[in-house]
Design a protein around this nucleic acid. Structure first.
Length: 106
DNA sequence: CGTGTGACTCGGT
DNA sequence: GACCGAGCCACAC
């Protein structure tokens, strides 16, 4: 079974993202910090953008610090919709109840 | 091995 | 609140 070009760092990102409970969201920086590299937020973004495990990883639950949606491979609009489906309210590319649903892996 | 790129973050204006 | 510039990280070529 052919394994995709998953790098160790990317896989770590996917596993961390998988831990985000339904209805909650986290940030790239938070995930990076959880992995032990608080400065690797950018690298985290890259890993999720690659996203070969899309159906398995709730990458839509990951946004920028402050509650900004950030980006999404299928389109930021789709991300917004998915979040609303899980109970996360968004507005103008931003999460409304950010402080309520923020998840920091603790 | 050096360069370029991106779903980031922070601080200042 | 929005925009801009500089700093940081891992990865593909």
């Amino acid at each position: 079974m052919p394994r995709k070009d998953i790098t160790p760092f990317s896989q770590a990102v996917y596993e961390a993202t998988r831990l985000i409970p339904l209805g909650r969201v986290s940030t790239y920086g938070t995930i990076a910090k959880f992995l032990g590299k608080p400065r690797a937020a950018r690298a985290v973004g890259n890993a999720l953008h690659n996203n070969p495990l899309a159906p398995q990883v709730p990458c839509h639950r990951v946004v920028m610090s402050g509650g900004h949606l950030g980006g999404f491979a299928e389109g930021i609009k789709k991300k917004k919709k998915l979040l609303e489906t899980e109970g996360v309210i968004c507005k103008s590319g931003r999460v409304v109840n950010w402080s309520e649903i923020f998840f920091s892996f603790k």
